[in-house]
Design a protein around this nucleic acid. Structure first.
Lengths: 207, 207
DNA sequence: ATTAAGCTAGCACGAGTGTGCTAGAAAGGG
DNA sequence: CCCTTTCTAGCACACTCGTGCTAGCTTAAT
């Protein structure tokens, strides 16, 4: 048999190249040729792992989603582990901080998120992935607020989700004005207004 | 002399065509050919009014900005006219509602705003216009909060601006989930949390 | 060493892009 | 009338795009 290459890791490497191109020049510049060059491969090689241009973008979007989900789930574990209300509040702040561009890595992630989400508006192939990310954020917001005993969770979850998205968008579009310090201050102010460090709601010790 | 055509109104008509194409298919589809067809003109005609593709997009962005500014300024007039605190609070709510996609027209406007702002990240020609819109929103937020006597205006203005941007983005990207009702509820909740209907700050009767 | 599969590399085609340039149509002033 | 200027229309060029297709390289099993 031939040279055996771990196909999945190769696909992930190409997805990384997609992220770099999108980051630097926008999603519409993520052509097969540009991505192949960024990945250090010939265009034919990329097409050996992805039948379609669409499939490449869909895979990259799934890759992004999984990466975010992995990070968020790790944070959820930490919150479960924390016993004191104080520890919980810090855990929540860290969890939400995970979803907002506080460091260069997450900044890049937000850039790619915005590019893909925007593209999904006019590219049907990307719509399911974008929807999943959107719904995931709302789910997290809802869970966090329920646990904290915040009233009117439906509206508050939308408000929190909109704030997080807004901060991410601002950091992406005007990074010199929306610095990590500003983001942290705004987020902290919002949590104070919600009294997230209050006692947990009754019957919320499990799950 | 020849057939005299009002050049400025013709440029504005072409800009409208840009908006329609961007709305329907995204900014990267706003090629000279597509825009010309949408405007019912030949590509050569469009190029008679715009030397460049960039100039066309920059003009369209300026047109969008002027439209928003006109609407906002009209609202500011109304707030100045209102005497009672109650009237002022309603005026503020209406002003902020002007910046968020509550009806189809403003929805389309938000779509175009997001497309241009995003494009400005990798297209230098659009950067000044996008920056102007961004700064304008913050200026309005700051002014409104100062008038309402909200403490810590710097952070609160960023929070309000991020919320407005986030609502707009969500309405653009997932319009079936982020309905006008949701937007109104979130905005109202946020204003309640700020106590915008409190007494105006001392020395804020002028300007 | 031979074989066959996975992999790499790239040519070719039709479609779409911005732009330089040109030729004709349209219409008010002489 | 004709002329001049604005406007309209579009050809042509070089470029990029996704994709169908093919030829050669690499390597593990026989």
């Amino acid at each position: 048999m031939p040279k055996v290459v771990d196909a999945e890791s190769r696909r992930r490497a190409v997805a990384e190249a997609v992220f770099r191109v999108v980051r630097a020049h926008g999603l519409d510049q993520a052509s097969l040729r540009n991505v192949a060059e960024e990945a250090g491969l010939a265009i034919g090689s990329v097409r050996h792992y992805f039948t379609d241009h669409d499939e490449l973008l869909v895979f990259a979007l799934e890759e992004l989603t999984e990466r975010v989900e992995r990070r968020v789930l790790a944070r959820v574990e930490l919150i479960h582990a924390a016993g004191t209300p104080r520890g919980r509040r810090d855990g929540v702040a860290d969890l939400l901080g995970e979803l907002v561009p506080l460091d260069p890595d997450r900044h890049d992630e937000s850039v790619v998120w915005l590019e893909f989400s925007r593209a999904a508006r006019t590219r049907p192939a990307l719509a399911p992935g974008a929807r999943r990310l959107h719904a995931g954020l709302r789910l997290i917001a809802r869970r966090v607020l329920e646990r904290a005993g915040v009233p009117d969770v439906a509206v508050e979850a939308e408000r929190l989700a909109a704030l997080l998205d807004g901060l991410a968008v601002n950091a992406v579009l005007q990074p010199d004005l929306t610095t990590p310090d500003v983001i942290r201050a705004v987020l902290s102010r919002h949590l104070d207004g919600l009294r997230v460090d209050a006692q947990p709601a009754p019957g919320s010790t499990e799950d």
